[in-house]
Design a binder for these strands. Structure first.
Length: 549
DNA sequence: CCACACCAGGAAACCTAAAA
DNA sequence: TTTTAGGTTTCCTGGTGTGG
């Protein structure tokens, strides 16, 4: 049975990747729901810098989306970005291991193994039982590469132990690192230090021997414990087909030391003195060269990361602005449809506003697309993108020609005056709740919930709050706490309350609204029947959008 | 009376350590 | 290594106390 540790060790060794990413993922205790995407984001703080860079260089966060309700203890899955995705038959057991090579990422599930390339395309999905899952996965991984692996062998004639390439063992085609019998006698080419040079001098000889272990590289066996060989009496003779080989001279155990081997031994002894130092220098050079490559690569990744992050932030701003514009547009459209000649706002002004909104929506949409395109050509046109983004961000929506000062947190800007008023609130809960009011109108809030999750007690699923705005509130709150010079621990504790405050605010608003509705029913029953339109307009004062945008 | 602030209950989600 | 059990946290909602 192959252990997870072995898989990881060997795969990483094989790939020359020294980083081990996100393993030990916690229990999945509910079924995967098809069509419910999640996002992967790595908690960078938990990794060393090199690990984080390695993960980023693979761009995992931007490439993988699992459809389903999966919990990870070392990272979470997120669907914020509209990426490619894969399904696992509507059900996933548990992700137990993640490992990767330069082309693909492997997720080892308890019940399924998913192999995919970094575009997110699943190219292999194997359904196996937990018992053989690791082995199956490893087989798949090594399938094409086994011939390049090495075997630690013992020759029967002189009991010498050598490391030879797997391809130098005749009739041997292992599927995994465990796919061999220690008892079986194989025919093995005597290992050559310089194959080509020696082949010119004499034909390579084949000797009988046994395999002690398999590994991804020659070094695999250097730190290994001494492996016991199987007693001669227990060895199995090679099969007839394997014996039927006239191409090479096969020398069985008990023969005198053959000629080729003697020559080789002498040559090796001669060379050893001078070659050792040469090899060391060569190795050092190789090492330095590789180190340089790694450094260069890491720098590139850092730069790319910075650029991508800037662009993503800017893009998010535009998206949220576009979203709020769309909401405005829809609200206005609705009102127009319902008409209301006496609604307090003339049709003309509504139409005008609509026109403006439509125009600006289109503008924003075009610009967002443009940014997306430019992100792909990040290397060549960064400065240009930044410039275009700047103008795009400054331009849109509000139409406020008298530019009010704004305070920015995350990707959201708060108008300075109300923000400063709110900042003077002595209570943290009120500070958060007021910010919520600043970003969402009461009507909007009453239709939403913090995360969009359905509550067992409620019939409807409410729209979640925009994550960017929530993040902005959290940042503003963090900033406030820092300015108050709290300890880090206190800040962390307080920050945990943000969501509660927001949820409470939503509930308060909802309660308030329902109370108002109740009163209205009462009014209808008794006296003044207010026009529906009037009510809508009075309530729908969008405190948020104008200010944010 | 109303709006606000906060608390409590319940289910789902999450985490972890022990058992198999 | 995998599964299970059970404790903890989070989220949403309903309810209550308080001050203007």
């Amino acid at each position: 049975m192959i252990s997870h540790e072995n898989i990881n060790k060997e795969v990483l060794k094989f790939c020359e990747i020294n980083y081990n990413v996100g393993y030990s993922i916690s229990k999945l205790d509910r079924p995967l729901k098809v069509g419910k995407p999640l996002e992967i984001s790595f908690p960078w703080d938990n990794y060393t810098e090199s690990e984080a860079l390695a993960i980023q260089s693979l761009n995992i966060a931007n490439k993988i989306i699992l459809y389903g309700n999966i919990k990870f203890s070392h990272f979470t899955v997120d669907t914020k970005n509209n990426n490619t995705l894969f399904l696992v038959n509507g059900k996933v057991g548990r992700v137990t291991k993640i490992f990767k090579n330069s082309e693909s990422l492997y997720l080892l599930f308890q019940e399924y193994k998913v192999v995919m390339d970094y575009s997110g395309t699943v190219w292999k999905l194997i359904n196996t039982t937990p018992a053989n899952s690791n082995e199956e996965c490893l087989k798949l991984y090594f399938k094409t590469k086994m011939s390049e692996f090495f075997a630690y062998v013992q020759f029967l004639d002189d009991r010498s132990r050598k490391v030879v390439p797997v391809k130098d063992i005749k009739h041997f085609d292992p599927k995994t690192l465990e796919d061999f019998s220690k008892k079986k006698i194989y025919k093995i080419y005597w290992p050559q230090e310089d194959d080509e040079a020696n082949l010119e001098k004499y034909e390579r000889s084949i000797y009988e021997g046994t395999i002690l272990d398999l590994g991804a590289s020659k070094e695999s066996f250097s730190k290994q414990k001494r492996i016991a060989s199987v007693p001669v009496t227990m060895l199995e003779s090679p099969s007839e087909t394997e014996l039927d080989d006239h191409s090479s001279k096969i020398l069985s155990m008990g023969n005198a030391l053959p000629q080729a081997k003697t020559i080789d031994l002498l040559q090796t002894m001669k060379k050893n003195l001078t070659q050792n130092s040469k090899i060391r220098i060569a190795q050092m050079k190789k090492f330095i060269f590789r180190k340089r490559k790694v450094d260069e690569y890491e720098n590139k990744i850092i730069n790319q990361k910075k650029k991508i992050k800037t662009l993503q932030n800017e893009n998010e701003v535009l998206k949220s602005k576009f979203a709020s514009l769309e909401t405005d547009f829809n609200t206005l459209k609705e009102k127009l449809n319902r008409d209301g000649s006496n609604a307090g706002i003339g049709e003309c002004s509504c139409t005008e506003m609509l026109k403006v909104l439509i125009q600006k929506s289109t503008e924003l949409d075009q610009k967002t697309t443009k940014i997306d395109q430019k992100t792909t050509e990040i290397d060549q046109k960064t400065t240009k993108i930044e410039a275009s983004l700047k103008t795009t961000v400054e331009e849109p929506s509000s139409g406020n020609k008298n530019k009010e000062k704004e305070i920015i947190f995350g990707s959201i800007s708060f108008p300075e005056k109300p923000f400063l008023t709110i900042s003077r609130r002595p209570k943290n809960s009120l500070f958060v709740k007021d910010l919520v009011s600043l970003l969402w109108s009461d009507e909007d809030l009453s239709q939403r919930s913090l995360t969009g999750k359905k509550h067992y007690n409620s019939k409807e699923i409410k729209q979640p709050l925009t994550p960017e705005k929530r993040f902005a509130i959290e940042e503003a709150f963090k900033d406030r706490l820092k300015k108050q010079q709290h300890h880090d621990a206190t800040i962390a504790l307080e920050l945990k309350l943000v969501n509660r405050y927001i949820a409470e605010k939503i509930n308060d608003v909802r309660k308030c609204n329902s109370r108002r509705n109740l009163n209205m029913t009462y009014d209808i029953q008794n006296k003044n029947i207010p026009r529906e339109e009037e009510k809508d307009f009075s309530e729908n004062e969008p405190t948020s959008n104008d200010m944010i945008n």
